[in-house]
């Protein structure tokens, strides 16, 4: 943003008129985007004031180890971060969050890939219908989707009643308020993203490649594993990264589907901020959550990209 601003200043400064004619043309070209800049001013200022500054402010607070936020007697240290990484409660919470997010990615991948593959092989009409069916739930509030799972998974819910009636089990299973419940809720909520990411990469595969491999005598299985799967890896990666990062930072679903039994990081952070009012410590937790998410995404992408190239150029 800084260079952009300095150009704007140049525009209003009287220096422009004294520029030698040689530079005039360049100036004119430069000027042509100044109206564009004016259009950007409201949104840039808004996001700077209400997004960048608050995010930097809590980063600053995370280094204050006293609860007193106002200036003078604030003690700056890494204490919040040290507490976080030495206290087994928080480390355990981080571990549960990562574990649940990985499970959610796996479920979303196992169900999402066949959906995407079916879409890629269907007619445009069927594809449009499936897209509408899977994307629409994303536009309905997450609390409503979670309530649907309550109806299905509670001890007296649809699934338990059914299993009890046909005699497979003799007491209700703990489907809700457990890690399983959270994985069901998260994988359900983010599965559409996985499908849409994979299907985009499947559309980009040249259909003649599969034909060529069939002509050369490869079985459909062989074609799938040596052509379709490797070429759709970018979609698998971006889908997995998206589902993972969304699962890591989800609050509502773990709060409703796991409750106190599954203290994932977002639930712990919420508790620190809203119930205990530990704002400086909560800020540090927020940044660890943000950093863990971004870091895992980075590592995940790197690892998979390497294996992708190995796969494709084998």
């Amino acid at each position: 943003m800084e260079p952009v601003r300095s150009h704007a200043d140049q525009e209003t400064s009287p220096k422009i008129t004294t520029e030698p004619p040689k530079k005039q043309k360049k100036m004119k070209k430069r000027r042509s985007w100044v109206p564009g800049l004016l259009l950007l001013v409201p949104i840039l200022l808004f996001l700077f004031g209400f997004f960048v500054v608050p995010m930097l402010y809590i980063l600053y607070l995370s280094f204050i180890s006293t609860e007193n936020l106002s200036g003078a007697d604030a003690v700056y240290s890494l204490q919040n971060y040290i507490t976080l990484f030495t206290d087994s409660y928080y480390l355990n919470s981080l571990w549960i969050t990562v574990k649940i997010s990985i499970y959610s990615v796996i479920v979303a991948l196992l169900l999402g890939y066949p959906i995407a593959l079916t879409m890629a092989k269907s007619s445009a009409r069927v594809r449009a219908i499936i897209t509408l069916l899977i994307a629409s739930p994303l536009l309905v509030s997450i609390v409503v989707r979670n309530f649907g799972w309550y109806l299905l998974l509670l001890p007296n819910g649809t699934i338990n009643s059914f299993l009890l009636n046909i005699g497979i089990i003799n007491k209700p299973l703990n489907l809700l308020f457990s890690e399983l419940g959270v994985v069901i809720g998260l994988s359900n909520a983010y599965l559409p993203f996985m499908v849409l990411a994979i299907v985009t990469s499947l559309y980009n595969i040249d259909p003649s490649l599969e034909k060529a491999s069939a002509i050369l005598g490869a079985s459909p299985m062989r074609s799938f594993f040596s052509i379709t799967l490797p070429l759709s890896l970018p979609g698998i990666i971006s889908g997995s990264v998206l589902v993972f990062s969304l699962s890591m930072s989800a609050y509502v679903t773990p709060a409703l589907m796991g409750g106190a039994n599954v203290p994932v990081m977002p639930v712990v952070v919420y508790d620190q901020i809203n119930n205990l009012l530990h704002w400086t410590f909560g800020s540090a937790l927020s940044y660890v959550l943000l950093a863990t998410t971004l870091l895992s995404v980075f590592i995940f992408t790197r690892v998979f990209e390497k294996s992708k190239f190995k796969e494709v150029f084998r």
């Binding site: 608050p54 809590i58 607070l61």
Partner: peptide, 10 residues
């Protein structure tokens, strides 16, 4: 969640 926390504190 982080955005909500940042805005509340700010």
């Amino acid at each position: 969640l982080v955005l909500g926390i940042a805005l509340l504190i700010y």
